[in-house]
Amino acid sequence: MIVVKDLVRRYGTHTAVDRLSFTAQPGEIVGLLGPNGAGKTTTMRILTGFLPPTAGSVQVGGFDVQTDSLEVRRRVGYLPERVPVYPDMTVRGYVLFWARLRGVPRPAAAVEAVLKRFDLLDRQHKLVRSLSKGLRQRLGLAQALVHNPPVVILDEPTIGIDPGQVIEVREVVKSLRQEHTVLFSSHILSEVEQVCDRVVILHRGRMVAAGTPEVLGRQMKPGTHLYVALGGKAPAEIKKLLQKLDGVHTVREQGAGFVISSHGERDQRAAVTALSARHGLPLLELRPIELSLEDIFLTLLEKG
């Protein structure tokens, strides 16, 4: 549904997006993750047809954003980072305006449905200026979805709203998976982990990693990571014994036990149980652990 190939966008001498390539399939939620200035908004603006790319190609639904911009724009619903509103319009009038502008065949019915979906029906005659930030966010989502676009692009939709509304917006985004391809940007790692099927991590305009959060964990720190808690000896002695295991490169204390990391895909569980039996140390806990996206992100930024 979305195919981005070698995308470059420069502002003067500054390169905001540098040879970025990724795809998003129908029914998939792809997260763009990165700190401020990573190129997330620029990438999204190019995908919506707002900005032209300096080089590379972007296709949405089989249409090129440069040569078939209007066709692309028909297929995209977009919520910019700062929800753009007309403060003097009513909630209903605002959504109806965008529905008409995007050529929705029965705009009144579509507006009714989308206002109901975002629980704005009872506020439809209120002026937009009277809405709270959270309600404006819902209104922004309503305008982005009123024409039922196959592709939905949401630029940091949870920024600046309270925690309850953040959960609400995340649930809405997850519910879009059934009918839309969603591109979702955020700089909150846990959010992307919760919401997205795949993640593209950007830093200074370049893609530093891509994949599912689980795959990214394996990509960044190859090898298995085990949490081990052994009794019967002082922690320092246990640590020494664990360090001597073949293939183990790092042992660090965590809580009442240790996290051991080994090279490659080597599973150290058998070695740990053998060690426990050999030295008569009671095995209190042994489990594989996944790296959090936070760990991955920090590692990538250090490399970048």
């Binding site: 724009r73 977009y78 910019p80 050529g103």
Partner: peptide, 13 residues
């Protein structure tokens, strides 16, 4: 100022 120009320029018009 309101940023609505971004939505206008990304609408199919």
């Amino acid at each position: 100022r309101e940023g609505t120009v971004e939505l206008l320029l990304t609408a199919p018009i």
